[in-house]
Design a protein around this nucleic acid. Structure first.
Lengths: 243, 243
DNA sequence: CGTAGGTTTGACTGATCTCAAGTTTGGTGG
DNA sequence: CCACCAAACTTGAGATCAGTCAAACCTACG
């Protein structure tokens, strides 16, 4: 896993070069950022609902999720995050967190003050636009999740979540989408799809029995991508991956 | 209903003054925008999924919704919009629409090119930050909807939607939150909450029978706001209304 | 090995959906 | 002003997908 400040700077630059045109001055400004590298244990919270957030986490390795809790204690995971994701850009403009961020595996992270990023966004408009664009893609993904949870049945919902995970994983440079290790438990899949873990388990078995996926522990192989896409009703346009 | 370009400019300035500090130059730049005023009939689409969007709609009167459609034709409404809302800010950075926008009542609107707003955001950083902040609040609302649809039962879901509508309506200066006319049909409430219209109808009756709301046609009165808030599990922090 | 967390299974329950038939409402043209 | 029509709302009965509860089985790790 990456753990140094140089790694953080490099990851940051790579991410935003895919999204907007950076000139030499932009890159110099990013290199000047004061990152602090560190690690976080699985299960720990990076942000808690209600916190006033003054630092921004860059994920260098591992998986995290955003979640909200209803009064009666039910947890809803609203997104998963992976290597390269900037977790707190919205807190540059909305300092009070309306959700928590939790590590679902051990994490390698870098940390930088929101004030520094806010200043960077003002001074280097290309970077500011990159930040905005990044949060707009998050919003597009939330819209798709609303559709997924609101309209699709349990099997499609889970299949859709797996497709999204596979495609984003690939886009983040973490390997081919046909075969991968799931970092999340079935309980977490349930919390992300609005189902119970028992039902997630049964639906995963169904997807296996139908020959769409193969499973071995947490390892998942999408055997028939075209059929998987149909079962999931998955159209990746909402991820806005093509710049 | 407001219908002139001056109205549009005024509405725009009022909205962003609540959100960020605008100086005289900012306000001059907004006044220089080339708005076109117009009206839209209920049911018409302002944007369709897949469109390349080059104009931005400002809602001066009436109600609209954002929606996405699953392969089998099910519609999910992902947000409602009302007077003062800027409907297409995300298209400044993501030109291809990943969702549709439809009028749910007759609308009075103003229209301005996304290129002009993009230039404005670059030249006047305070306005750019206002745009960003606005879209971040949208994203926060989507997160709450994911929680609402994923974790709450039918009665709470509908109650939550009504609370949000009431509070946003008040914040938009459209009147007190205790009594209002719903612009949407029960079918549209169903599409927004991931329920069937039949079940929405029954739950509205239940809320009425329990004495939490009173209904007369589309007119709704929240009789007991405290109890309503509890039933809905409604915590307005996610609306980020306090600047 | 022992233990805790994660996964799997079975039997039963229930919230929400489906289908189908009224009933009411609001707008329109005569 | 009334009659008509379409859309919206309401009601009932029966079906089903997903939830609940409880137990057993893995498996990774100390």
């Amino acid at each position: 896993m990456l753990t140094t400040v140089e790694d953080a700077t490099g990851a940051f630059i790579r991410k935003f070069e895919q999204m907007v045109e950076l000139d030499a001055a932009d890159i110099r400004a990013i290199r000047a950022l004061a990152f602090t590298a560190g690690t976080i244990r699985s299960g720990q919270h990076l942000v808690r609902e209600g916190d006033v957030v003054e630092t921004c986490w860059l994920l260098l390795g591992g998986y995290a999720c955003r979640q909200k809790t209803s009064r009666n204690g039910n947890r809803q995971i609203v997104s998963f995050h992976m290597t390269g994701d900037l977790l707190d850009l919205q807190h540059l403009m909305l300092p009070v967190a309306d959700h928590s961020i939790q590590a679902i595996t051990d994490l390698s992270v870098a940390c930088v003050s929101t004030a520094a990023l806010r200043a960077l966004a003002r001074e280097r408009p290309a970077i500011g636009e990159g930040f905005w664009r990044d949060t707009l893609i998050d919003a597009s993904i939330y819209r798709e999740w609303v559709l997924n949870i609101g309209q699709r049945d349990a099997k499609s919902r889970i299949a859709h979540m797996l497709c999204e995970f596979a495609v984003r994983r690939e886009a983040a440079g973490l390997g081919a989408p046909e075969r991968f290790d799931l970092p999340m438990t079935q309980q977490q899949i349930a919390d992300a799809t609005g189902l119970t873990p028992v039902h997630v388990n049964r639906m995963l078995q169904t997807l296996g029995a139908e020959g769409v996926i193969e499973r071995d522990g947490r390892r998942v192989a999408i055997v028939d991508w075209e059929r998987m896409r149909r079962v999931a009703d998955f159209e990746p346009a909402y991820l806005h991956l093509a710049a």
